[in-house]
Design a protein around this nucleic acid. Structure first.
Length: 259
DNA sequence: CATATTTGACCGTA
DNA sequence: TACGGTCAAATATG
């Protein structure tokens, strides 16, 4: 498993667990630049898109102007952050999805994140009643695939934990770079939690991504089975996290030593 | 040079 | 006429 595949795998797993990488997908001015700190302050991540994880961008940056840390150390930090998030995903991201109309979803989040699609900003408006501007995005592949998907990002509050309202309209028809999308009524797992008051969390179903593992494609569900030990299952726990960590760090370390 | 963002102009709606 | 969504030329970025 090469290093990029390793990271793509990790990001896929994280996406499934609700982890949200920091990106500059949203107006950089909000954060004063294109380097964002993840909310729990573990890493600065740059130029992260899913599923094409831009490893170079990640490795080029470290916190607080430090010299780039040792690659293996950086990898371990990333994975440890990931594991912490695997254990407590909901505590880190108190986000809520609300359905507005049939083709429209609102996501209130303290952390705008790369949702796996590629967007192009086409407008920025000052709106009445708020000091924050509203950013309009359309799918990058609007022309190519006649994709009508759009999203609007509106910061709704300031302070230590600013809030953002992200409105998605129309489903993607491009089927390009899809990882996580607003929940759909067709989502089987989503139906079970769509009960009270129209407020929902993201569905917890594994994204149906195929992960390029060497020469063969492996369904993400298979990966989960690999890293789920019998004892963990018995205790109704999720993952054999230590095994996952050691394997991932091992993959990355090997690649670093070769480069 | 290709692609993305910024930003004022334009236009539809209420 | 105010507001907000979109366009598109200018500008930035890699």
């Amino acid at each position: 498993m090469g290093v990029c595949t390793c990271f793509e795998t990790l990001v896929t797993l994280l996406a499934w667990c609700g982890w949200r990488p920091a990106t500059y997908d949203f107006p950089p001015t909000i954060f004063g630049g294109d380097l964002l700190e993840s909310p729990h302050g573990a890493l600065t991540v740059r130029e992260l898109t899913m599923p094409s994880f831009r490893l170079i961008g990640l490795l080029q940056n470290s916190r607080n102007g430090e010299e780039v840390v040792l690659k293996q150390d950086l990898a371990e930090r990333l994975f440890r952050e990931a594991l912490q998030t695997l254990i407590k995903p909901c505590a880190l991201y108190d986000e809520v999805w609300c359905r507005v109309e049939d083709n429209s979803w609102i996501n209130n989040t303290s952390m705008p994140y790369d949702d796996g699609y590629q967007w192009r900003k086409y407008g920025d408006k000052k709106t009445s009643g708020t000091d924050f501007s509203r950013s309009n995005f359309r799918c990058t592949y609007k022309e190519e695939y006649e994709c009508k998907a759009k999203k609007v990002v509106q910061q709704t509050s300031d302070g230590d934990t600013p809030l953002f309202q992200v409105t998605y309209t129309n489903k993607h028809t491009c089927n390009f770079c899809k990882t996580i999308s607003p929940p759909t009524s067709q989502s089987s797992s989503f139906g079970s939690i769509e009960k009270d008051s129209g407020i929902n969390q993201m569905p917890d179903s594994m994204p149906q991504l195929l992960i390029n593992q060497g020469s063969c494609l492996v369904d993400a569900n298979n990966l989960r089975e690999i890293y789920t030990s019998a004892s963990m299952v018995e205790r109704n726990c999720e993952w054999d996290l230590d095994s996952l960590l050691m394997d991932l760090v091992g993959f990355v370390s090997d690649d670093y030593l070769l480069s």
